[in-house]
Design a binder for these strands. Structure first.
Lengths: 217, 217
DNA sequence: CAGAGGTCGACTGTTTACAGTCGCCGTGTT
DNA sequence: AACACGGCGACTGTAAACAGTCGACCTCTG
């Protein structure tokens, strides 16, 4: 196998570059689910030492992209239908909290603006590649979490992000993208704007349920 | 032979031992918040090499017990009142999902039994040390997440566990323990038993809100 | 031919060594 | 006295080496 490029991240530590490269390799399918990850092999691909690689792998493991087998053997995690549904349940819970938090803000104009901008970016990406559309979709949801100002919430969501990407990849990008609807996002923002936390929660739950359903179909 | 089985169970990697030791050191206050963590210093304390230590630190970092400063300098995370409230918000969201999931199970008898057993253990610990009482309390909540069978949910909760422990420590064990009520837990189980997800959610939220309020007071 | 060793190879666990960087502090200059 | 400079020490980033373990395959023996 050819080397995995570490482009665009020259400023950061090798560990972070490796982490990003591995994440991409896994969520893009270059490293297919179930694949056994051999440290010496990967460190050669990435042109880094094993020690540095191992640090990155620990992080990946915690994110759930990599799972441990006997004697520390690592492999790319394989997601089955139930796991995808589970991931989306947790995702829905986190994003519902995000929406509720935003609903309770006294002044939501700035928040609404940012969210609408994110939706706009998504509309612009309609003509782009599948990957770009997925990115813009995840951006919206990540933005929602970030705008709450709750770092713990954002961090929890981000540690789920890799699994979400894998879910989409697992089911095929087409399916994942087909489910992405600008309308749904507009509904969420509208609910937040009126401060209706219950409606926002229900909208998000429906969004997540149908997304999970499409992915496992 | 018993010895063979025991060998497999008690032998963990140095990394895991170090991880557990560091977690304990931080949540017990031996390593106070804000303290700068020097790798060579820690590796000497723990009698392990820096490489092994660094892997453990990455995991600790992801759990939020350790935060990174300039040039990779790590220090024990310091939680302020807002962060504690934020952590408990996310915790409430996750446990609400757990309760709702359990409410939707067709046959909940086994679950109810396990939860009541956990509460029983908590009552037994009433006479124990403060640490033991905190442990039994966390056990109940962790059990609730585990019983859902949603590994992602359990994992998300567990990655918050360290922060929860820090919150309790930050406010002083007495305060944390004073807030632990067997009644509250019984209320949660009762709600799950009747399948009333809304009631379970509200009970958990109140529980979490008041816990956070006590801790930051 | 079956099965008990026994060597080999492939990995992971762990340690040790080396390189780079930043702040500190003393020194010399003006 | 203020300031620029340069050596020094303290850390982190990174690499390379060493050790232990388990499975595969091969061989010898009954």
């Amino acid at each position: 196998m050819a080397t995995i490029a570490l482009l665009g991240l020259e400023k950061k530590s090798l560990r972070e570059q490796a982490l990003a490269a591995l994440r991409t390799a896994i969520t893009s399918g270059a490293l297919e689910p179930g694949r056994h990850l051999v440290e010496t092999e990967l460190s050669e691909m990435l042109q880094i030492s094993r020690g540095t690689l191992r640090e990155a792998l620990r992080q990946l493991q915690q994110e759930g992209l990599v799972s441990a087998g006997a004697r520390g053997r690592l492999s790319v995690r394989h997601l089955d239908a139930k796991e995808i549904r589970d991931i989306y349940s947790v995702r829905a819970a986190l994003e519902s909290l995000a929406a509720r938090t935003l609903c309770e803000l006294p002044d939501r104009q700035h928040v609404i603006g940012s969210l609408r901008a994110s939706i706009q970016a998504m509309e612009s990406a309609t003509q782009g590649t599948l990957e770009e559309r997925v990115e813009s979709d995840l951006d919206f949801h990540r933005t929602m979490c970030r705008l709450t100002g709750n770092e713990t919430l954002l961090h929890s969501w981000e540690s789920l992000e890799g699994s979400i990407r894998m879910s989409i990849m697992f089911a095929g990008l087409e399916k994942g993208v087909r489910n992405m609807s600008v309308d749904r996002h507009n509904d969420i923002v509208a609910a937040i704007e009126t401060g209706d936390a219950t409606l926002a929660r229900d909208t998000i739950r429906e969004h997540m349920d149908s997304a999970a359903a499409v992915l496992v179909a």
